[in-house]
Each structure stands twice: as C-alpha cells, then as structure tokens.
Design a protein around this nucleic acid. Structure first.
Length: 200
DNA sequence: CGTATTTGACCAGCGC
DNA sequence: GCGCTGGTCAAATACG
C-alpha cells in the first residue's frame, strides 16, 4: 500500500577488515512497521546472512574469480586429474560486500547493469530461494545475490560483491527512462525500488 | 540463431 | 570421518 521504500544504507569506510561488510542503513521514513530501521537490529536478527556469516570463506579466487572457476563443478577433466590452479594461497583479498535491503515485490532490481543468473538455492529459515547473479562482463567479476525475507515477502535483500570496473550499459542518459522505471517500482504500479549505481 | 534462464550435480568449508 | 550447508558450474531449455 504505501509507496515508500525502506532501504538500508550505510557505508563504512573501514576497509581494513578482511570481510568488510559495508552495511547500508537508511530508512525511508514514517514507516510504522519499522521492520527495517536504520538501526536494523531487528531486521537482521533473523540471522540470515547479513549479520555475519561464520567464516570468511573466501573460497573464490581473490585475483580472478572468473577464470579460475575452481569452485564447485570444475570440469570433469579437472576433477579426475586434479586442479591445476590453486586459489587462496594465503592472500586474503578484501571483497567488499554491499548489502541492500529494499522493499519491493520484485527481486529484479535494475541497477543499470546486466546480470546473468547462475544459480538458485533455497535458504534455510527462508521459504524463498536465493538467486545468484553475476555481471556479464569480461573482467568484471561482480556478483550479486538476491534474497527475500520469509517473514516479509516485501523485503528483498540484495548483496553486491565486488566492484564494477566498467560503465553502465544502460542508457542512463535518459533520466526519463529511469524515472519511469522508478515510478513503476516505486508504487505507482507496484512496490519496489531501483537502486542506482552509486557504488561504483 | 544467439542469449539468458532453469535445474541438477558437484565441491569446499565447517560442525559434530 | 561423515554429514550438512552454501556456493558454483554446466547442460539443457526457453525465449527473442
């Protein structure tokens, strides 16, 4: 009903931590059901994943996580013979993670980048599955995952991993277009929100 | 025909 | 050591 959107917004310049979890916290406004307050204490009390996962688990290659592909389904040949490259040689590269908590009915928040869905897994404590997206760009290994709160289906958590190294493909030149999109997502036609590439 | 999405299988890390 | 969970890839499929 309310066309406003709640979204966490808070960037912490603390890049010293290995697992820099930049959490954004910024509420929209007069939301009585403060599910998502800037404090966000209760919002993440669900213990889903925003709070803090257990281990760093930087399984992905710190340098190039796109070409290594030494994660799960390595090629059969690799499996049989063995891995050729090695990851995580002791180097803990920081992978900034930006968590976006948005209030929208659609999980496809168009931020101007092209994302290719590469996986979907069901999350415990959540009846809704989590979608894994990856930026379709050579060299741009930015990942994004979208999860919906089982408690509030209207709340969608988008976690961005990595940083884009290329301009947006979309023609954001057309502000009107963006506005229209925002309107569509904002409440004129439904609820939602379009995040802008403020974090390049 | 090319691209994006779907779905199952697989692997690595962690807990017990 | 085994089992669980989360995360990713890869083949097949759907869609324009």
């Amino acid at each position: 009903m309310d066309g406003n959107y709640s979204m966490l917004f808070a960037t912490q310049p603390s890049s010293s931590t290995s697992n820099s979890y930049h959490f954004m916290a910024g509420t929209s406004s007069h939301d009585h059901d403060h599910h998502v307050t800037e404090g966000g204490h209760r919002s993440m009390s669900h213990g889903s994943f925003l709070g803090e996962h257990s281990s760093s688990k930087d399984g992905v290659s710190p340098t190039e996580l796109g070409e290594s592909s030494a994660g799960g389904g390595a090629s059969e040949a690799d499996r049989s013979t063995g891995v050729v490259e090695k990851k995580k040689g002791g180097k803990k590269e920081r992978r900034p993670r930006y968590a976006f908590q948005t209030r929208s009915q659609v999980d496809i928040l168009d931020d101007g980048y092209r994302w290719r869905k590469y996986g979907q897994k069901a999350v415990k404590n959540n009846k809704f599955p989590r979608s894994y997206y990856r930026c379709t760009h050579q060299g741009c290994n930015v990942k994004k995952q979208v999860q919906r709160l089982s408690k509030d289906e209207g709340v969608v958590v988008t976690t961005y991993e990595g940083t884009h190294t290329h301009p947006i493909e979309k023609s954001n030149d057309n502000f009107e277009h963006i506005l229209t999109q925002m309107q569509i997502y904002s409440g004129i036609g439904g609820s939602g929100f379009s995040s802008s590439p403020m974090f390049q």
